[in-house]
Every structure is written in C-alpha cells, then in structure tokens.
C-alpha cells in the first residue's frame, strides 16, 4: 500500500516517518515511532487514554490521522519530564496516589496539562470539566481531581 511521508516535532525532537494512508496518529506513535505512552483503550474516541497535545490543543490521537500532522508540534506524556525531573502534574499524581492500573494515566495527565496551561488556578469544576473525556475504571476519579488541583497549587506557588 502507498506510504505517505509525515514530519512533525514530537516532544521537541524532529520526527519523520512513512505511514500508510489512513494510519491514526495513535498507531503511528505506538507502532512506528515507539512512543507507547498514548494508550489505545477504545480506538473510537470515547475513553481519552490516547490523548496527546497537538499545537497546544488536546487531541484524541486515535481519531487523528497521522498524515494530517505534518509540521505539527506534538507532545505526549513520555516527553513531559525534563532532564529526568518529573513535571508537577506527574509529581502530584504520585503523591496523591492517583494511579492504580495506570492505563488511563498518560491521557489524564495530557488533559490536565492543557487545562493548567490555560487555567493556572482552576476550580474543582474546571478540573472535572477538563477530565470529563477521560475514563478511569479504578480510582473513582477523586484522587485524580485532587492531584490536578495540587499540581495547580504547586505551580502557582512556584510562580509566586
């Protein structure tokens, strides 16, 4: 089958790959490029486990065609820690015991990051809204909500 070249920036690194037309970004990242941090929980845009950030927007990589991502700036949870130091959101998820099986965690963290990038001091309602497209079956959500609120507080303290 015909392959399409696609180039984008992934977690700050120039990345190029040939993909079959119709390949989702999720499959391209996982199977071709080797970034398995986005998870395939449904492949139909209903669970949020595959969430990534494309040009600052939260996107479902299972519903995004890889070939539409040329020139894009893509971020995944695998690229969030800088220099081996965890991002405040990652730290907060650890401290709040907000992970159990961990399968939804990378997508949750992506959704939370887009929220905090735009709304550094979110209300609980803001957090609930931001996470509402991400399914978790283990935690009952409360620890995740608390982790995001804690990360926001940590950020604002650092800024102050």
């Amino acid at each position: 089958m015909a392959k399409v070249p696609v180039e984008f920036t992934l977690n700050g690194l120039e990345t190029a790959e040939f993909v079959e037309s119709g390949t989702t970004l999720l499959n391209a990242l996982r199977d071709k490029i080797g970034d398995t941090s986005p998870k395939g929980g449904c492949h139909q845009g209903t669970c949020g486990a595959c969430s990534v950030i494309i040009d600052g927007e939260l996107r479902l990589s299972c519903l995004t065609l890889a070939e539409t991502c040329g020139g894009a700036d893509i971020k995944t949870t695998a690229g969030l820690a800088e220099g081996g130091v965890l991002h405040p959101l990652q730290r907060a998820f650890l401290d709040a015991f907000a992970t159990q099986c961990g399968f939804c965690t990378p997508g949750m963290i992506m959704a939370a990051k887009v929220l905090l990038d735009r709304t550094p001091n979110p209300s609980r309602e803001d957090v609930v809204e931001a996470l509402s497209g991400n399914i978790c079956r283990c935690t009952g959500y409360e620890p995740i909500i608390q982790a995001v609120l804690t990360a926001a507080r940590a950020n604002s303290q650092n800024a102050a």
């Binding site: 996982r30 970034d35 398995t36 941090s37 986005p38 998870k39 395939g40 995944t76 949870t77 695998a78 969030l80 820690a81 965890l86 959101l89 990652q90 998820f93 650890l94 015991f97 992970t99 961990g102 399968f103 965690t105 990378p106 963290i109």
Partner: peptide
C-alpha cells in the same frame, strides 16, 4: 509510595500491547 506509579505517570509502564 507505589513502586509502579513512576512508570504510570511517565508512560513507561509496559503493558502487553506495548
């Protein structure tokens, strides 16, 4: 702290499909 959580929050935990 859970020894598996750092892998979860960094997306490094290897599930079968990875």
């Amino acid at each position: 702290p859970r020894l598996d959580s750092p892998g979860h929050v960094t997306g490094k935990t290897a599930y079968f499909a990875d």
